[in-house]
Design a protein around this nucleic acid. Structure first.
Lengths: 189, 189
DNA sequence: GAAGAGATATACAGACCTGTAAACCTGTGG
DNA sequence: CCACAGGTTTACAGGTCTGTATATCTCTTC
């Protein structure tokens, strides 16, 4: 029925329950390792209800990534608002906070690895990572106007954070904390 | 039958054909998106032959990651041997060379995202990434003995390279080249 | 040439996948 | 009380997955 992109604002409570359950399972076990049957059962609904709300599994995957971004972005902005200069470090703070509970690494990098690059939800992944890098550049421009090439420094910090988050799944170690320390040094004049 | 880890040195030519086909398909479409039926057909063998050689799909996955490392590592060492100091940049050179053909990003990060962390092949992923980082530290220690904390610089370069390679799948852009430039600056005193 | 051993192919089991058609149940208007 | 409409559930279609039991075929040995 609903093959349009899902509008998160017009989801019913029942649909949110499905999305929440799907999100947890997708993240924990991987998108293609979780069947819609499992999701529906865990959410306490039947399969046609799921399909009525999300069209098909791809719609649910898209809603998963979209909703994750919508919940995460305000947390980043809050951390930025509460952070002393250089506020770019707030990105690392949020990633470290995330890492405490997200033992499977970055949901977007995981999804990127699983989904085909022409999957309808792939642009959501690109967008999520793009705006993070963009925000880093803005923060650098505002907090450290003396920096010559803010885009390059933003990319530098972005790669540190992403590399550390990607490997958090593999090692689960303290690479994120180390990345933050390195970033701190890069941002101090 | 063969539930032991696969010994790459005792594979028959037919088994190598299977492994090569599986490797290409695993990398291109993702491990769990490719069925053993497809692999067997593409390799020109029947399924029982595949199972006779690799025990089960997990054995084939393990052989895939193992073999990839065995073929890649000598390429890294060659690049290191041919590189002027600081030779740590050779890692970026190989990654950039890889990126020309590997449009799906890093095979190990992709596998890490797909496989459960307790999958029998997961240690192969950890090992591959670990030795790369380790090698970076050695190269820094040898080429730049004045560096105070070579482990930290190695981690720094490693995160740059891994972040860039991870995002090569998402953007396909020039992040690896930029990461190399950043690394070059970090290595110049 | 016959008999047996080992490799190969056929065919299938049993589970799980996405997605849907049709039966059913509930609540509303006449 | 009855007809009708909307949402819900049951049941299933059709396909794909991993893994294997059984039959066939080939090749060696006597």
């Amino acid at each position: 029925m609903d093959h349009q992109p899902i509008d998160l604002d017009s989801l019913t409570p029942g649909a949110w329950k499905i999305l929440d359950v799907a999100s947890a399972l997708f993240y924990e076990y991987g998108i293609y390792s979780v069947g819609v049957d499992t999701i529906a059962t865990e959410a306490g609904v039947t399969k046609p209800i799921l399909y009525k709300n999300f069209g098909n599994k791809d719609g649910l995957i898209a809603a998963y990534l979209q909703n994750r971004h919508r919940r995460w972005w305000p947390r980043l902005e809050e951390a930025i608002a509460a952070s002393p200069a250089p506020r770019a470090l707030a990105v690392f703070d949020v990633y470290m906070e995330d890492a405490k509970t997200m033992t499977r690494g970055c949901a977007y990098l995981n999804a990127a690895a699983e989904l085909a690059t022409d999957h309808p939800a792939y642009p959501l992944i690109r967008h999520h990572k793009h705006v993070v890098c963009e925000r880093l550049r803005q923060l650098i421009e505002e907090d450290l106007p003396q920096i010559e090439d803010p885009q390059r420094l933003a990319d530098h910090l972005f790669l540190l954070a992403e590399g550390a988050f990607a490997h958090h799944r593999i090692y689960g170690g303290s690479l994120l904390a180390e990345a933050r320390q390195i970033a701190q040094k890069l941002l101090s004049p």
